[in-house]
């Protein structure tokens, strides 16, 4: 075949080489754009991934879980750490994903142009409940964000009467912290401003009274295998505890 060999060389080698080199150059440009952002960011949030939830630490000392507030219009530097196995931080609408690698520090840059709630989810298989490890990024105008972050760093709004006593005297305080009270454990998410969050259990159910009750009394039915044990409370204790937790905003 006289045209066979030139055809194979042109269609199989020359043409793809030209296309691929072009595409590759564009990709390199994008890669460098994405990485250079680091030099202009002036706020760094620390995100620590756990089995199966997210802990967020703000520069002013505020600690929260599963909802990440960021200011709009500026790149925010995310320092990604893991408390246990490898997880991956991914908010599809805002940025590609970078892993939380055990024993290493990784960085990723988020920038939201518009205020809004952006859903994120763990993208690296991390065991039994990998499917139920979501979170939300809440992007707000910079002044709204500053105000929110200031409030988030403050101690719990409600004095720990009644419900607070139940919290401190039950197994809750063994794992969760509520700043401003004697509960300082860091095994589970910090609950200081729990009422402020729109979702529970790492972004998988809305934060309302019924769901909160289920999380306390029967967490395994929502997320089998989760570290949180069911808590055995009388109806009265449960009611005052729910009042108290809902008041933490």
């Amino acid at each position: 075949m006289s045209w066979g060999d030139p055809f194979i060389i042109f269609a199989g080698v020359v043409l793809p080489a030209v296309i691929l080199i072009g595409v590759f150059i564009v990709a390199l440009r994008d890669m460098s754009d994405l990485s250079e952002r680091g030099r202009t960011a002036d706020i760094t949030l620390e995100v620590v991934s756990h089995d199966w939830w997210w802990e967020i630490r703000y520069p002013n000392g505020a600690i929260s879980a599963n909802e990440i507030h960021i200011p709009t219009g500026e790149p925010v530097r995310m320092k990604l750490l893991s408390a246990d196995v490898i997880h991956s931080f991914w908010v599809p609408q805002l940025q590609g994903k970078i892993d939380h690698v055990t024993g290493r520090e990784n960085y990723l840059w988020l920038e939201a142009d518009e205020p809004g709630r952006y859903r994120g989810q763990c993208a690296e298989f991390c065991g039994l409940q990998h499917a139920k490890m979501a979170f939300y990024v809440v992007a707000e105008e910079p002044d709204v964000f500053e105000e929110w972050m200031g409030g988030e760093a403050e101690d719990a709004a409600t004095a720990p009467v009644d419900g607070g006593e139940v919290f401190l005297n039950s197994t809750c305080a063994g794992c969760h912290a509520i700043r401003g009270t004697e509960a300082t454990a860091t095994v589970g998410p910090d609950l200081t401003h729990l009422g402020d969050r729109e979702t529970l259990f790492s972004g998988i159910i809305p934060n309302d009274r019924d769901n909160l009750e289920r999380v306390i009394t029967d967490p395994q039915s929502i997320k089998p295998g989760v570290a949180m044990p069911p808590t055995d409370l009388t109806d009265d204790e449960l009611a005052v505890l729910l009042d108290y937790l809902e008041g933490l905003d």
Binding site: A27, D30, M31, L34, S88, P92, G96, K97, I98, A123, E124, F125
Partner: peptide, 9 residues
């Protein structure tokens, strides 16, 4: 890379 980091996993 930029595309992969979006659709990876």
């Amino acid at each position: 890379v930029p595309f992969d980091q979006q659709v990876h996993d």
